[in-house]
Design a protein around this nucleic acid. Sequence first.
DNA 1: CATGAATGAGGCTTCATTCAT
DNA 2: TATGAATGAAGCCTCATTCAT
Lengths: 184, 184, 184, 184
Amino acid sequence: MKEDNKEKRIFDAALKLFVENGIDNTSISLISKEAGIATGTIYLYFDNKVDLINKLYISIKKEILEIICTEPTESMLSYDLLEKLWMDGVEWGVNNPCAYRFMMQTEISPYCNEELSAQFANYMKVLTKLVLGSIESKKFKDLPPEYILETIWTHLICTIGYIAKTKTRERKIFFQTLLDGIKY
Amino acid sequence: MKEDNKEKRIFDAALKLFVENGIDNTSISLISKEAGIATGTIYLYFDNKVDLINKLYISIKKEILEIICTEPTESMLSYDLLEKLWMDGVEWGVNNPCAYRFMMQTEISPYCNEELSAQFANYMKVLTKLVLGSIESKKFKDLPPEYILETIWTHLICTIGYIAKTKTRERKIFFQTLLDGIKY
Amino acid sequence: MKEDNKEKRIFDAALKLFVENGIDNTSISLISKEAGIATGTIYLYFDNKVDLINKLYISIKKEILEIICTEPTESMLSYDLLEKLWMDGVEWGVNNPCAYRFMMQTEISPYCNEELSAQFANYMKVLTKLVLGSIESKKFKDLPPEYILETIWTHLICTIGYIAKTKTRERKIFFQTLLDGIKY
Amino acid sequence: MKEDNKEKRIFDAALKLFVENGIDNTSISLISKEAGIATGTIYLYFDNKVDLINKLYISIKKEILEIICTEPTESMLSYDLLEKLWMDGVEWGVNNPCAYRFMMQTEISPYCNEELSAQFANYMKVLTKLVLGSIESKKFKDLPPEYILETIWTHLICTIGYIAKTKTRERKIFFQTLLDGIKY
DNA sequence: CATGAATGAGGCTTCATTCAT
DNA sequence: TATGAATGAAGCCTCATTCAT
């Protein structure tokens, strides 16, 4: 039978090498060596290299989105909720630097098309609801919701990068620049 | 002497194709065809493919930095100055979508190393001075200057992307989210 | 004991796929899927792929030769005998189009060597005797017996192909072109 | 500039190896070695392996058809004309054993599709005219013209094979078996 | 006997780079 | 300078075969 965690080993090896060398400078053969398996074995788990890239991207994106986009407890104010989501996101990014870098690389590469992005629509619902509600109740500025969503995401990414580089323990002061930027 | 503008034609062709297909899916041969010259000719102007990528990146990065980082007139307040720089940057990005995308792609790719980035230190002086001064005079929050610089850059990139996608004429309201985020 | 008819299922699957896609474009794995068994099972019945090809070829060639080369009843004239053999051969070919095509393909391929062909010497005795006798008794032209044998075989193959393509019910008129060609 | 006869050297090498080992057991790399060029060079002349196979087949088929299907002199009787064509064909086949074998192999392989065959329609006109005219004037039996064409071709192939194997100088007696078979 | 995951050699093809013209 | 045919290393992928279950 297919061995327990071979797919995970391929994922881990690919992620490490993609981030180190770039996707296109990482050969399937190299991935297989890093994963400690034969080249052909990768093709038992993935149709081809693009399929591997896509599935890796999806797996990572879902992981972060599941963290960020979990349904909130009823009692939370929208500011608190945003802060909680943002903090969780930062923590994930700081603890998964490779995953974070790969996600960024892929998102602006030609490997990331609309079809791929469409898979995550569901996850965005929580965040979208939060933003729409906060605009309506005049907690957020009256900006296009998509712009606010983009801003949140970009600011998160930017902060993760800064924290990863400087290893600072600060969090709250960075979050404040986001909140002050978008709050009414 | 080297013919008039052949280097520019190579740059233009490479930029277009790099953005369309990704750097590694763009062959030198394809670039030469797009530029209307022979394959070998590219090697009269560039040492190799990486050299072409680097020089293209440098050329673009300098273009945007020269726009953003020009010495301000004495009379400008720091808020006004930041706004002017930011506005110029947005306009450049919206008008040069390929250059903008290429710059982003390259910056997180393995092609962009520290040695390359170091070339732009000079250009950053203006901006750095602006940020340091504004922190000191309590116009900006007391955050690490590098974080503020990163935030400005990221916010700029994010907004260019949004405007390029939606073709909106709005500018000021987007700038306000940056300013509110970092001002004291 | 080896399960009932698994070898036959492999033969059938291989024959179908070899004819559809060519021998070298048919993988063992594909054959196993078509046969509804596991890949490794094929290696319980055949040493390797070449062995499968050879045994399939032998099995088919024997089938047609057994039909064509059965001992005649004493009373038959050589013309009648030839006609009977030829008719049987045509009928087999028309009813077994895959087998017929595979046999042709294999016979001119590098898979078919002298050692393989030698296995059928026995079967040819009847036909050889018929031809030699007919030449001696001046019923057939005084041509090299091997040439006549080749002619008979080729003409048979040609006619099967034509009938398979056109679905015609005609038989006798085609046989006549063979007989007129070689009879004294 | 593309060197004078490199395409021919590829053709010659491919033809030799295809016949010796079979098409699918002949790698592009092997062909390039036999031709004394680099592997990649083959792809300057052919799109891919199938393209090479097709173009080689077309080139050979056209060669033999041009020999066989040249317009006859007015004065020739149809029997004489058929004999001349047949003799020319036999001579070509005997002198080009590789080409002859490759043509046969390819014709019953999956590489030979209808689209490929359609390219030769023009060449067949002479032969078709000869056959139709001969049937009408009761020189040939009243058989389907396609069957007669097939018979001629098959008989030619069969005879070439026999002569190549036995090195016999005989010709006329073999032609007679064809003529007797189809003449009225 | 039967399975099918795993292997890794080998095939097809691409492409950065060179060099003779 | 400019050309583009030629090179051959390297990448993706297939598949005959093995072997632990």
